[in-house]
Structure formats: structure tokens, C-alpha cells
Design a protein around this nucleic acid. Structure first.
Lengths: 208, 208, 208, 208
DNA sequence: TATGAATGAGAGTTCATTCAT
DNA sequence: TATGAATGAACTCTCATTCAT
């Protein structure tokens, strides 16, 4: 796996990310990518070797971005509850700004047709889990959180809720009377975030 | 849309469901379906008209199953809280037994490439929402539930949490030391269900 | 080749004639014929053996109709010129009422892909040529017609002119301001017929 | 529509023209064209987009050839009658050398199944009609031609006669004792041309 | 580094025909 | 006599990839 990508390669990756997220991997042809990226069809094979390796490169490239985050949260001067709230808000914000990437990953993981190197992604997930664990333990030490918390179930709740909401966006837009991109993003950042924060807190707070 | 399917059609639908869930719609060829179903390639077109109509038939066929459920829940002799708990348990059980179907739908809805007739599915979702609404209102009338509940956000929480857990099954199997299908199903039916029930309750219970 | 056709067979032949004339032999599927004729797809093979034999049957069936005509013309109490005029008028009328059949034959003859038994059709053409020859000789004996007439070129002139006009019908409708089926048929029966009569006469009349 | 065709495209067009004329459009498969042209099947789609666009390209390509003709005829130092004779001779020669093309067009126009861009061909026909009109008016001004001439009926007579003769070539070869390609072409260029010239003249000359 | 030509495999679909009833 | 199911071959077209330049 190449470690560095030049400008042209990055451009191709960006286009591929967009199209993969829109039409799926199988539903996107190299010709389409080449056309949108305004390059020759042969360039994809030339730069990445094959369509499959393009996908691998894309995942590798994006997961590198995801790594360096959430780690310093526990060092900030906040209460454990505030840290959890911030953790959730940051996480949603991160997923939301990387929707396309997560969309692709979600399906490529579930359709494990392609044996890809998802190690880096697994590492990211484990890192995030560790960060959360640290906060949780801190809160438990301070007797603010419950002692028996099923920590690994927290992120699927977070991510899953967000993504199912997003996947069925049109359904919820109809039900919730959301009629613009702006309102949608506002709803995600406020109502949906608060909804998820409330959920997470309910799972960890000690309700005497 | 045909209302009835004969045995051979059902067999094809079952094979298609399995392969679509494994490889995705685009990643599954009619030839592959025909091979697995041990029929002639032309039979799919013969029975369903086209590959796309096969998918529509599949969705229609499965969503018909989903309709007649959850409706009578409010009439059962249970407290509102018990009804919500049962609603969650039934819902998860239903999704879990129709994993493949939901997997396909998730994909096809998010990649709204194919303008399909998802009306029946939308109806099911609206029906389920209505059933839940009824229970919620009952609980609110009895002053057990909060008055300001964002009901439409409850099912994405439920479904999303389940599916993200399932999608990342291998990750959680590693973290949670689950090493068999039986243990996985048991975990879903007990721990995951309880986790989600707890979440939902936290969203609706009035905590004075 | 079967000599007699029952009612169902005749119905199929009529439908096939219409569709072959509209879409061509290759452009017409047995399924389409069966659908329009409201019969089972297998019936065509059952009754005629194959699609190709259906075409042969159609040609055989229709050319039988064409035989018994034009023969008695020379016995009528008319001048040679009147006989020629009537010959032309009858011929055009015959072709016009059998447009579809002639259309099909025209192309099947030119695309001699299918080695069909067109003997009966050749006989018809030879018979018509003989009838015309008889009239011509009569007129030559009466010193009304030229002595050196290229008789075989007369019918291609007649048929060819009619058919090229008909084939390019839409072009001529635009040029000639013809805007209805009635006007078109009237134009064929009057102007076009007179035009062709004038041509034929100019070819045979002795212009001292 | 591409304006220029490279050598390979022209080669494909030539092969397609031959096969379409022999077997018809529907009766000719891309595979057959590719085989005869000794190219890969995918090349037809690659160069022309589709089978239908190949046909359009073929018609466009050939009709471009036909355009720049007959126009300068009226400027030549000939009598109106000589101009008409030359018009007929040139026209027949042109059709004869483009037999295949005209054959295909005849078929495709009559079976107007495919909504093709026949604009260029219609223009050619209209241009030819205009050229003839000019000559006719010249002859009428010189009081050599009749005043009431049905000009649009002249070209169907010309083309139709030629084509019906050609379509039934084998029949006429038998009747006229023509037994070689050379004799056939000679017959077309001399007897058939004179026959048609005589017809056209009879239609326009003022016979006081 | 970059391109357009070219390839062979495979896609979905339709076809004429045959089979079992 | 008649049917609907079923078949295998053929169709057009698109695909990812490779080749020559």
C-alpha cells in the first residue's frame, strides 16, 4: 500500500469517494470516475492498479484522517459528564463530516466480498473505544457513573442511531417537516445530538 | 405487482435474498442466482420480468410479512412500560429474523439509484410508528411518560443500534468474546435487547 | 405445404401479415404475434411448425388469392387502349389492397436470406405478364400500339412507381398537402393511377 | 453525430452496409459484422455507441456523398430536354452505385420502427426535387414543356421503377435472358435508363 | 507520464422452440 | 387440441483491464 498520494491521485480518490457513496462500489464504473475526474480511463489502473485497489487506497487514505482525534479529550478541564457530552458531539460531528466514507465502509464491511485490509479502521475503532473507556473509568472513580456499564455497546448506539437516521433521511424529513439542507444539518447538530447525548447519559449515569 | 408467488418463485426469491444480502444487488448476477437456485437464467426474466422487478418483488414479498404485527400490542393487558419493553423486544426479534431483507433495503434506500416502489415499506414504517405513538400517548395520559417525547427518533435509535451492532459483528465478537452463532443470538436477544430497552425507557420515562 | 387453413390458422396469418408488414419479419417476434392474436405462444409452432414456415404459409396463402385475376380482361368489349387503362387501374387497385403482402414479399425477395418457395408468386407475375402481352399484341395488330415495346419493363414501372410512392408516403403527404387517409387513397386511385396510366400509354402508343 | 470517420470506422461502415443490405438491419447481428470486419464485437459500440447509432452513422455517411450533385446541371449548356435526360441518367447512375444504401433506407423508412435522424436524407431528396424543378421551369418558360406537370411524382417514378426492377432482378434476368453482371449493368445503363427517360419525357413534353 | 485503441469476459434480456400435461 | 413452464442459444451492450505509442 502506497503511503503517499500525489495531487492527481487525491483528486481521483475524492471523486471515487463521492461516487462510491452515491452509487455503491459495484454501481460505480471506472469510466464514470474517469469522466467526472476528467482523466483518462486507464489512469485509475495506472495509479492504483485496479478498481479494488482504488477502494483499498480510498479507505486507507481516509482512515488515516480519523486516527488523530478524541485522544486528548480526557485531559481537558471538564467534568466526566461534560466529557461524555463532548465525546458524543465530537463523534457525531466527525461522522457527519465523513458521511460518505462511513457509508462506503458500512457496506463494504457488511458485504465482506472483498477481503480488504481494514486493520487501520479497526485500530481507529479500538482507539476510540479506549478513549471512551478512560472517561468512563474517570466518572466511575468519581462515583458519578454506574459501575456496570456495557461500554462496547455505546458506540454502536451512537453511530447506528446517527446512520439509520441519515439513511432514512427522506422519511424523517417528511415526518419532521425538514425541507432544506440547512435545517437538516441543524437538526443533526442540535436535536439528534442531544437525543443521543441523553441516551448515552442514561446508560452511564447512576440514578439513585 | 403480482400478489401471489408460486413455489418456484418463492425459491428464487429466497436465493436472491441471500445473495443480495451477501453481495449486494449490483454485485449479484442473475446467472449466479440461477446457478444457486438450479434454474435456467431465463427463468428470472420469465417469472419476474427483470432483475430490478425481482428486487421489487422481493421487497414486496417480505414487507407483506412485516405488516400484520405490533398492531394489537396496545390492546394487551400490560402497563405502558411493559408495552414499550415488549414493543422493543418484538421489533428486534422481527428485524433479527429478517436481517437479510433489512440489509438489502438499507442499501437500496441509501443508494436511491433505483426508483423503486417502496410504498409498502414506507407504510410499514408509518404503521409501526403509529403503534408506538398509541402506546406513548397511553403512557402520557397515565402520567407515566414525559409529555415532550420525540417519537420519530425512537425507531432509528432502535433499528440503527441493532444494525450497527450487527454490521460490525466481527468487531464486537472479538471485543465481547463471542465465539459462536448461538452465543451471538443469545447476546442479541438478551444483552442487546435490554440495552435498547433501557435506552428507549430513558427517553420516555418521566424522571421527576 | 398445407393446402387448407382453418379459422385459427387464418387468424394467425392475418395477424402475422399485419405485423410483418409493420415491423419486418426479423423485427416481429412470435410472442408479439401470439399476443396480438390472443393465442398461446406455442400455437404458432404447433400450427405452422416454425416461424419461417409461418412466413411461407402466409405467402402461399396470399399468392393463391392473387392468381385468378386480370385473365379475362382481353375478352371484354373494350378498345386496346381502354384495356390497358383498365389493366393499370386494376393492377394498382390489387396492389393497394394487398399492400402489406407486397411489402413483405418485396423485402423477402430482396433479402433472399430465406430460401422460400416463391414459385407460385413467380407464376402469378408470369401470368400477369402474359395477360398484358395479349393486350399489347392485340393493339399492335390493330396498328394502335408501337411494334417495339419492351413489355417486361412495364410492370416494374407500374409496381415500382406505386410502391416508391407508398414507401415515401409521409414525404409526399407533406409535399402534396395530403392530411388524411381518405385523401391519400383518393390520390392513389385518381392522380397516381392517371399518372401511371399516362406513363404506360406513352410507352406503347404509336405517336406518328 | 460525428462529422469525420477514421479508416477503421469506414471499414466497419462498409461491412455493415453490405450486411444490412443483404440481411436487413434486424437480420444482421453485431457479432456478424465484427466477424466479417475482423474486429472485436465491442468495437462497434466503442466507435458508434450502439447498433442503432451505427445505422445512423451509415446513413449520415452515405447521404453526405449524395448531396453535392445534380445542382449544377441547370447551368450547363444544354437544352431543357437534354438536361432532363441527363438528370435521369445521373440519377439512375447514382442510385445504382448506391444500391445497398438505398435498399437499407427503403426498408428503414417503410418500417419506421426506429426514429432515426433522416433529416439529411430528406434534405437530399428536397434538393434533388428543387434541381428538377428548376429545369422544368426553364423548359416551361421556353414553351417546350407542359404547364401542368406533377413534378413530385417524377422521382418516385424514376426511383421506384429502378428499384422494383432491381429487386426482382432474378425474375427479369430470366425473362430478358440476362446471364451476367456485366450484361445486367449494361441493361440498366442503356435500356432501363432509356425506358425511364422516355417515361419522364412523356410526362413533361408538350404534345400539341 | 499519459493516452486512445482494443480486448475478452460477462452482464441482462429476448428469442424461437420444446416439453409435460 | 391447447397450454404455460422451461430451455439454451443468441442478442446488444458495458465492464475492467491491457496494449502500443
Amino acid at each position: 500500500m502506497a503511503l503517499e498520494f500525489n495531487d492527481k491521485q487525491i483528486h481521483i480518490l475524492q471523486v471515487a469517494e463521492k461516487l462510491f457513496a452515491e452509487k455503491g462500489y459495484d454501481g460505480t464504473s471506472i469510466r464514470h470516475i474517469a469522466q467526472v475526474a476528467a482523466i483518462n480511463v486507464a489512469m485509475v489502473s495506472y495509479y492504483f492498479g485496479s478498481k479494488e485497489k482504488l477502494l483499498e487506497s480510498l479507505i486507507y487514505w481516509r482512515t488515516q484522517d480519523l486516527k488523530i482525534q478524541l485522544e486528548n479529550l480526557s485531559n481537558e478541564p471538564l467534568t466526566p459528564i461534560q466529557k461524555v457530552e463532548k465525546y458524543v458531539a465530537l463523534y457525531i460531528q466527525k461522522i457527519n463530516s465523513n458521511r460518505q466514507m462511513y457509508q462506503i465502509l458500512q457496506f463494504e464491511i457488511s458485504y465482506n466480498k472483498r477481503a480488504m485490509d481494514l486493520e487501520s479502521f479497526t485500530e481507529v475503532k479500538k482507539g476510540n473505544l479506549a478513549s471512551l473507556n478512560k472517561i468512563i473509568e474517570e466518572g466511575q472513580a468519581a462515583k458519578v457513573f454506574k459501575s456496570n456499564i456495557n461500554v462496547p455497546l455505546i458506540s454502536p448506539t451512537l453511530i447506528g442511531t446517527f446512520f439509520h437516521f441519515h439513511t432514512n433521511r427522506s422519511f424523517f424529513e417528511e415526518v419532521l417537516k425538514i425541507d432544506s439542507e440547512t435545517k437538516y444539518n441543524a437538526y443533526v447538530e442540535k436535536e439528534l445530538t442531544e437525543h443521543i447525548q441523553q441516551i448515552i447519559k442514561s446508560l452511564i449515569l447512576d440514578e439513585k
